[in-house]
């Protein structure tokens, strides 16, 4: 695990200010509780009540789309910081270069120093790699004021930006921002033995009723065929129920 250095230079600048409230320090552990979905590009933000890493029930921003489809976190971090320079953002890349948090694995992040007393909300988002545009998310929970250890759940959201065709070349193909079928930047799923090939496309009905809002992900359809069928995802291995990750936040 390494921190990407997305914590802005503002950290040091703001540490001594805002004397009316003591700045909290957070240590965060995230466990991937899915069976078959590595996470990529986890982004963690402490922010104000009017800042949003994502908003369920509304359309995804370009930055969230890049994270959900592409596993690219810098755009979303930049969006958040452009809206409010005082947010505290940490980007996590895990599994030393492979850049993913494997199912069952836990990473510990921190300390994340909350530099502005107005940053009272905590949000997280990370791409679920074996989906078209699914991401694990924590949506603006209140950071507890009292020191202690607190548990939160991450839910699987659908960014609503790409049809859920569940085809490997789209899910794990080259990533081009602006392409309606942005995939990952490299073949990150090459070690997933449950992936099939040559599907014809799940969710064929989706195009006529495309829902552009961020929703709770309705799950993977999948099929049982290693080659052919509708989907390249496995209907048993790649399914999940919420929550898809558990989080422990230690507030100091």
């Amino acid at each position: 695990m390494r921190l990407q250095g997305l914590v802005g230079m503002s950290v040091g600048m703001w540490l001594g200010l805002g004397g009316m409230a003591q700045a909290a320090t957070l240590t965060i552990s995230i466990t991937n509780t899915t069976v078959g979905h590595p996470f990529k590009a986890l982004l963690i933000a402490a922010h104000g009540v009017n800042d949003h890493l994502f908003s369920s029930g509304y359309a995804a921003t370009a930055g969230l789309r890049a994270l959900a489809e592409c596993g690219e976190q810098a755009s979303l971090a930049a969006e958040l910081r452009a809206a409010n320079p005082l947010v505290d953002v940490v980007g996590v890349e895990s599994d030393a270069g492979l850049n993913k948090l494997m199912p069952g694995a836990t990473i510990s992040i921190g300390p994340l120093v909350v530099t502005d007393a107005a940053n009272t909300r905590l949000s997280m988002a990370g791409r679920m790699m074996a989906t078209n545009d699914g991401f694990a998310g924590l949506e603006a929970v209140a950071i507890p004021a009292e020191p202690g250890a607190y548990a939160f759940d991450l839910l699987a959201f659908d960014a609503g930006t790409e049809a859920n065709n569940e085809l490997l070349p789209i899910i794990d193909g080259p990533c081009t921002v602006g392409d309606p079928y942005m995939g990952d930047q490299r073949a990150d799923l090459s070690d997933d033995l449950y992936l099939g090939v040559n599907g014809t496309g799940a969710a064929a009905k989706e195009a006529s009723v495309l829902n552009p809002s961020i929703t709770i992900h309705r799950g993977v359809l999948g099929d049982s065929y290693a080659a052919g069928g509708l989907a390249d995802l496995d209907f048993a291995h790649h399914c999940w129920t919420n929550p898809v990750a558990t989080v422990t936040v230690i507030v100091q």
Binding site: S56, G57, L155, K205, I216, G219, W240, T241, N242
Partner: peptide, 13 residues
């Protein structure tokens, strides 16, 4: 029903 009618919990905010 078709696959678009599938849902996982939770369903509303």
């Amino acid at each position: 029903l078709n696959e678009t009618h599938r849902f996982l919990q939770p369903v509303a905010k």
